[in-house]
Design a protein around this nucleic acid. Structure first.
Lengths: 226, 226
DNA sequence: CCATGGTTTTTTGTCTATAATCGGCTCATC
DNA sequence: GATGAGCCGATTATAGACAAAAAACCATGG
C-alpha cells in the first residue's frame, strides 16, 4: 500500500484554502477590497502568510491586484465568462478522452456514486458542488498534472462566478438536478466505453449544453458607471 | 492611444522573472536545492520577496516544494514531457483558431518579422527564443487571458526542459532554423486566411511535427538510483 | 564498511517593525 | 461651485528577528 503523502501544512496553505472557500461561498462581495491587516485580524495570523496566500489566490484568479498593490475580488464580466467557457470547451473533451483510455474501476465507481448523490440531493449549492466534483474526478482520471492545474483554476473561477450570480439574486441555471444527473450519466457511459473520440464528443456536447443554459449577461442592477 | 499600463513593480515580481530566466538559462541544475537564504544573499533582498517569488514559480512549474518546504528545481521526466505535449497539442490549435478570427494586422506583422528574424539568426538559443515568441504572439492574439495563463506555464516548462537537455549535452532538436521558419510561415498563412478550422489544423500539424523531432527519453547517463 | 545516536548547522515558518505609498479629507483659492 | 495643495490615516513592501524543524555532520559501536 502506498503511504499517504505528507502534505506541507503551513499557514499560507490553510489561509489560501479558507479564503478560496470563503470567496466562492460569496462571503466577500465581488469587487470589494480586501486589506491584509483586516484578513490578518479576522484569521488571527500575521500578514506574511496572508500575503503568500493572496499571491496564490491571484494566480488562481480568485483575487486580483491593482497597480498599487491593493487586493480585490474580481468582478467577472460576460467576456470573462466567455473566456472560461472557451477554455472549458477545450479542456473537458481532452480530459474525457484521456480518461476513457486510462480510467480505472475506482473512477467509474466514484462517478456513479456522484451521479446517485446528485439525484438525491436537495439544494442547488449541493448540485454545484457535486458537479464540480464530477468533472474534477474525470480530469484527475486523465492523469495529466498540467491539465489538472489548468482545470483547477477554471473551476475556481466558475465557483467565483456562481457566487457572483447568487449575490445578484440571479438564477444560475435552469437545469434541474435530474437533468444534470442524466447528462453526467451519458458522459460517464461514453468514458466507460473506452473510446476516446466518443468520450471527447460527449464531453464537448455536455459542456456546450451546460453553457447554453447559463445566463450570459448579468442584469446590470448595480450602477453602470463610466 | 491606450495608455501604457502601469505595472506594479515590487521586488517579488522582479525576483520571480529573474529567477525564471535563470532557471530556464540552466543556471540552476535540475534537481538542485534552492534555499531562501542563499537566494536572499545572491540577489541582495530579504527573504520575504524571495518566498513570494518562489510561490509564483511553483505554480508556473519552474520550482517545486517537497513535503518539508524545501525548494528544488524539478527534474522533468519523459512522462512530464508527454503531459506538456498533450496540453500544447490541445492549446495551440484553439489559440490559432481564435487568432484566425481576431488577429489584427499588427499581429501578422509581428509574426512575419519573427519569421524573418528566425531565418537570419545564428544560435540555437535564439531560434528557441524566437519560436517561443512566435507562439506567444499567437496566443496573445487569441485574446483569452485564461488561455494565455495556461500557455505561459507550459512555455516555462518547455524552457526548463530545454535547459535540462542542454545540461545533459543532448541535442534538443534536429530541426534547422530554415525548417522552423517554413513551418511557422505555413502556420501564419493558415491564420491569416481567417479560417479557424484551417488555422487549428495547421497548428495541430505544426505542434505534432515539432513533438516528433524532439528526443522523448533522456539518455540516463546519470545514476538511475532507486 | 555500515548502521546508529547525538550534536551542530542550516533552513523554513511566522511574527513584528519600519519606511514608502496611496486614498481621502480639509481647506484655501480662483 | 470647482479646483488644486497639503495633511493624515490606512495600506502595502520590505526587512529583520526568533523559534521550530530538518538536514548535515561526526563520532561511536557493531
Amino acid at each position: 500500500m502506498p503511504l499517504a503523502r505528507v502534505e506541507r501544512n503551513n499557514l499560507s496553505q490553510t489561509v489560501c484554502s479558507r479564503l478560496a472557500r470563503a470567496i466562492m461561498a460569496g462571503q466577500f462581495k465581488p469587487g470589494s477590497k480586501i486589506s491584509e491587516p483586516s484578513l490578518s485580524e479576522m484569521l488571527g495570523v500575521s500578514r506574511a502568510p496572508i500575503r503568500e496566500a493572496l499571491i496564490e489566490l491571484e494566480l488562481r484568479g480568485l483575487v486580483e491586484f491593482d497597480a498599487t498593490g491593493r487586493t480585490r475580488v474580481p468582478v467577472l464580466s460576460p467576456l470573462d465568462i466567455d473566456e472560461i467557457h472557451t477554455v472549458r470547451l477545450m479542456i473537458d473533451p481532452v480530459a474525457a478522452s484521456l480518461a476513457a483510455e486510462r480510467a480505472k474501476a475506482s473512477t467509474f465507481n466514484a462517478l456513479a456514486a456522484n451521479i446517485a448523490a446528485t439525484r438525491s440531493v436537495k439544494t442547488l449549492a449541493d448540485v454545484s458542488r457535486l458537479d464540480a466534483e464530477f468533472h474534477d474526478t474525470i480530469v484527475r482520471a486523465a492523469g495529466n498534472r498540467r491539465l489538472l492545474l489548468c482545470w483547477n483554476s477554471l473551476r475556481d473561477q466558475v465557483g467565483l462566478w456562481l457566487a457572483q450570480m447568487q449575490m445578484r439574486h440571479q438564477p444560475v441555471t435552469k437545469r434541474t438536478r435530474q437533468e444534470t444527473a442524466e447528462a453526467h450519466q451519458t458522459l460517464l457511459d461514453a468514458i466507460r466505453s473506452g473510446d476516446p473520440k466518443k468520450a471527447a464528443a460527449a464531453a464537448h456536447k455536455h459542456v456546450a449544453g451546460w453553457i447554453k443554459v447559463m445566463p450570459k449577461a448579468p442584469a446590470d442592477d448595480d450602477k453602470a458607471n463610466p
